[in-house]
């Protein structure tokens, strides 16, 4: 591998990481606050992708702008579903059997909804700049990928600011750390959970909409991404937003460079392999590792 090839791969790994991060962060906040694994995540990504497609085809809205519009829509969808279903689950500091099965059922319903409305043909979003490339010296980058990456990073930064500088963010962080203590100091955990769920679904939709600009999709769209999101949040330690960024980069790096060693058909097996390796050697994820390093230092 020449240096130029290496730099090109590194650049594409970085771009991929941005998308992966925004794809997984919704799951992390929901898990952190509610201890619910959002198995329906893939379904919401799929909905986001189709919403972006509709906005683009019917109203000629730029797909990136459409993705940003998808966010509030999915946020509302999330809060409604929380009110309808999720709040009825027993609260627990462990993921419960009931929550796993409920979210799984929701995923099946969403998938079917997708087939019902949009059929099972592969769809994609083509714009004038879908195939355009940018050159930075020896590095060639797809314009769309760069724009999508920019949007993803901007959204991550926005989330970071919300979590660290608003009253809602403080509530979220309090509940992640200790549910009881949070309630005692007056955090309205039901309201926080509802907003968090909306936020998580909003981010799932946003990620789906952004990915729609890069890949073709069908109602089964999110499944391979769901597994990647799992790997990333486990790598990140399940509850940490900054852990997600690191996890996303690790997975993107492994996948991008894995192409050199593993045939494309086995890429998903590579993700699972990474998951197993992390579970065995670093069960607390990157968060546990940084804590350990900090103590040794």
């Amino acid at each position: 591998m020449t240096l130029i090839e290496f730099v090109n791969l590194l650049a594409s790994a970085l771009l991929l990481a941005g998308i992966y991060a925004v794809m997984s962060v919704g799951m992390t906040v929901i898990y952190g606050v509610m201890k619910i694994v959002n198995l329906a995540h893939a379904g919401f990504m799929m909905l986001g992708a189709y919403l972006a497609l509709e906005l683009f085809e019917r109203f000629r809205i730029d797909p990136i702008l459409a993705a940003l519009l998808v966010f509030p829509v999915m946020f509302v969808v999330g809060r409604v579903l929380h009110w309808l279903l999720v709040r009825r689950l027993p609260t627990s500091d462990q993921p419960t059997l009931a929550s796993l099965l409920l979210m799984f059922g929701l995923w099946l319903v969403l998938q079917n909804l997708g087939y019902f409305i949009w059929g099972n043909a592969d769809r994609s979003i083509y714009t004038s700049h879908t195939l355009s490339l940018l050159r930075f010296g020896a590095v060639t980058i797809s314009t769309v990928r760069l724009v999508v990456f920019g949007a993803a990073v901007a959204c991550m930064v926005a989330l970071h600011l919300i979590l660290n500088h608003t009253w809602f963010g403080r509530s979220v962080r309090a509940l992640i750390q200790n549910r009881y203590a949070g309630q005692i100091v007056g955090v309205d955990d039901q309201k926080t959970a509802s907003i968090t769920f909306g936020l998580g679904i909003g981010f799932a939709g946003l990620a789906g909409a952004l990915l729609a600009s890069l890949y073709s999709f069908n109602p089964d769209f999110g499944r391979p991404f769901l597994i990647r999101a799992f790997v990333i949040i486990v790598l990140g330690g399940l509850e940490s937003v900054s852990g997600v960024a690191i996890g996303a980069f690790v997975l993107a790096f492994v996948e991008t460079f894995g192409i050199l060693f593993v045939p494309a058909g086995y890429q998903l097996a590579l993700s699972y392999g990474l998951l197993v390796v992390v579970l065995i050697f670093l069960p607390g994820g990157v968060a546990a590792l940084t804590a350990k390093v900090r103590r040794l230092a």
Partner: peptide
């Protein structure tokens, strides 16, 4: 790898492996 740990790891891994194995078998 998963039963040692607390939390949702087992459920997550089961979805992961079924996808991974199916893809491998297809190839």
């Amino acid at each position: 790898p998963t039963f040692r740990l607390r939390g949702p790891y087992f459920a997550i891994a089961t979805i992961g492996i079924s996808e991974a194995v199916r893809v491998v078998m297809t190839n």
